[in-house]
């Protein structure tokens, strides 16, 4: 009885092993496909994501009628610059010469949070920008910020880079901001570094924040009063 059963059980085991092998091959194939695709994509951070403006670094385009170059694809950083679902306002940036206060044409403004780039026109203005309202999570459960904040960088040949942080943005509201850039002068400017401007929080929120944590036993300047 046992001898009769052995071959049958051996065949079943063999069939199970074959099925298991096929399943493993299928799983391996599924795993390898995205990895191969990832290996073909450029490494994260190697090329900036360019949405509105293609930066011209002086290199000639590699284009021939026989072999058209493939369009450069954005790197897969896992970061979604459009921030779907987040509320947005509208932002327009003006870039001016910090000394003459005249508009600067052709400056490139980068919104750091969205990684998008915009060129200024003859009036020093960027196009209207869809600006996500990003409030700092640090304060969310304590005193919600009155406004979101965005950070910008402006580049212009012959000028110091200008980093402009903390631009106030609100849902559905229009915001304008001005970036001041300073011309690099051959004489005095021996050490050239970016200029930082930190836009302050609105004073109404600062007052709220200070009052929020004030102890009645240690009043400091006291609660806001007429």
């Amino acid at each position: 009885m046992l001898r009769k059963l052995r071959p049958a059980s051996g065949q079943r085991t063999l069939r199970l092993r074959q099925q298991l092998g096929i399943a493993l091959l299928a799983i391996g194939g599924l795993l390898l496909t995205p990895m191969a695709a990832y290996a073909q994509s450029p490494s994260p951070g190697s090329t900036p994501s360019v949405q509105s403006v293609q930066p011209n670094n002086g290199a000639k385009p590699n284009a021939s009628p026989q072999s058209p170059a493939p369009a450069p694809s954005a790197p897969n950083t896992g970061y979604v610059p459009d921030l779907p679902g987040s509320a947005a306002g509208r932002l327009r940036v003006k870039v001016i010469d910090g000394r003459t206060r005249k508009p600067l044409q052709g400056a490139e403004v980068v919104v750091i949070e969205t990684e998008k780039r915009y060129k200024t026109d003859k009036d020093g203005l960027t196009p209207w920008i869809k600006a996500p309202v990003l409030r700092s999570a640090r304060y969310r459960f304590l005193v919600n910020e009155l406004h979101g904040q965005l950070n910008l960088i402006s580049y212009k040949d012959g000028y110091r880079d200008s980093v402009h942080m903390g631009v106030r943005v609100n849902e559905g509201a229009v915001t304008k901001t001005t970036i001041w850039q300073y011309k690099i002068l051959p004489g005095p400017d021996t050490r050239v570094e970016p200029v930082l401007y930190q836009e302050p929080y609105h004073r109404l929120w600062i007052i709220q924040l200070a009052d929020r944590f004030r102890r009645p036993s240690q009043l400091g300047e006291g609660y806001e009063r007429p």
Partner: peptide
């Protein structure tokens, strides 16, 4: 004027 407080008319400011 002064900041006042949120979600109220701030009567004490009117008095001042």
């Amino acid at each position: 004027y002064r900041a006042g407080y949120q979600n109220q008319p701030n009567w004490q400011y009117r008095n001042a």
